[in-house]
Amino acid sequence: MAAAAAAGAGPEMVRGQVFDVGPRYTNLSYIGEGAYGMVCSAYDNVNKVRVAIKKISPFEHQTYCQRTLREIKILLRFRHENIIGINDIIRAPTIEQMKDVYIVQDLMETDLYKLLKTQHLSNDHICYFLYQILRGLKYIHSANVLHRDLKPSNLLLNTTCDLKICDFGLARVADPDHDHTGFLTEYVATRWYRAPEIMLNSKGYTKSIDIWSVGCILAEMLSNRPIFPGKHYLDQLNHILGILGSPSQEDLNCIINLKARNYLLSLPHKNKVPWNRLFPNADSKALDLLDKMLTFNPHKRIEVEQALAHPYLEQYYDPSDEPIAEAPFKFDMELDDLPKEKLKELIFEETARFQPGYRS
């Protein structure tokens, strides 16, 4: 834990890192770190609560700039109880001085990944967590956004079992017609939660990839272990087919990539493993919904509104309290091709509203 900075004593240090967030945020305490930044909790002297502050230093890398800009653009436009918001952003007053960006968010005690390492969940908890994931996802999908990296560590939890989806750095506007060349190379989302079509096709992607990830998360809540822990690309596919069985001819016809289709045709026939054999203690309604989410063919996979209306979630289902976005989200430009200098300018502009004396 960093010592509390005395008023006016300059930035606090946390594990050798400068955290320049005073005077409003003090009493910093280390939480963890990701690929390009550290997260601390801090005391907000204005709202009198502890908050989470993520320090991001992305400006050396085009990919990190892209992810940072995506996350900020999306989260500043989203407003939903099951999606983490941005409360404040701290950065230098000029673009030349801006080396880091500090993002202030609600402090959540833990995440689903940490929880599943230590606790076996009751059916009631599984049901409530799944409902909140789908409630947040309904809003995301209504904005025409794909999260693309749903996994237990991106689901934040607090002691009252509130759940918030975080990390929109890989999110995209849904565009089933656009052929994202190089899709697989830039697709760094965790393999275990990846839909089979991501490994088999490169053309376009749809909201059904997020539903697949939610199915993987439900299976993990039922058993405290990942359902498809593939060691590499082909191993991942083999794990999936080992449980779902061989795809039907109709399902194979959806695979545009001939090499991928021929690979699947070359494999020995596998039978589907019954879900109640894998999860003998699970609620039968939970397994019915799991089956509809972990469907090989993305066109037959359940959609988020149908999933919310499934009998497993009937005690929570309330369409009048499951809000959607006001308007579909649009990125003005494809960020993939922009140089990091341009992305830095866009991050600077996007964060201006939090600067003292800002006038829109």
Rank of each mutant, 00 (worst) to 15 (best):
A2C: 02
A2N: 00
G8D: 01
G8R: 13
A9H: 05
G10F: 10
R15G: 11
N27H: 01
Y30N: 14
Y30F: 14
G34M: 02
V39R: 04
V39D: 02
S41M: 14
A42H: 11
D44H: 15
K48R: 12
V51H: 15
A52V: 12
I56K: 15
E60H: 14
H61A: 03
T63R: 15
C65S: 15
T68N: 15
I72W: 02
I74C: 04
L75W: 15
H80C: 01
N87D: 00
D88K: 05
I89K: 08
I95Q: 05
Q97G: 04
Y102A: 12
Q105N: 13
D106I: 00
D106G: 00
M108I: 14
T110N: 13
T110C: 09
D111Y: 14
K114L: 10
K117P: 02
T118D: 05
S122V: 01
N123H: 06
Y128E: 00
L130R: 05
Q132A: 14
Q132F: 06
I133E: 02
G136Q: 03
S142C: 08
V145W: 05
R148T: 04
K151Q: 14
P152I: 06
N154A: 06
N154P: 01
T159D: 04
D167Y: 14
G169Y: 08
R172Y: 03
D175I: 10
P176H: 11
D179N: 13
D179Q: 02
L200S: 11
G204D: 07
K207N: 13
S213A: 12
A219K: 10
A219F: 09
E220L: 08
L222H: 06
S223V: 10
R225V: 07
R225E: 04
P226G: 08
G230Y: 02
G230W: 05
K231T: 10
H232T: 06
H232I: 01
L234E: 04
L237W: 02
H239M: 11
L244V: 12
G245P: 08
P247T: 14
Q249F: 09
N253P: 04
C254E: 04
C254D: 07
I256C: 09
L258E: 01
L258Q: 15
L258V: 09
L258P: 10
K270C: 03
N271T: 12
V273E: 15
P274N: 07
W275Q: 06
W275L: 15
N276T: 02
P280E: 08
A282N: 01
A282K: 02
A282Y: 07
A286N: 02
L290M: 12
H299W: 04
I302L: 12
E303C: 08
L308T: 04
Q315D: 08
D321H: 07
A325V: 13
K330A: 01
D332R: 01
M333Q: 10
E334D: 15
D337S: 07
E341P: 12
L343A: 09
L343M: 12
F348T: 11
Q355S: 11
G357A: 12
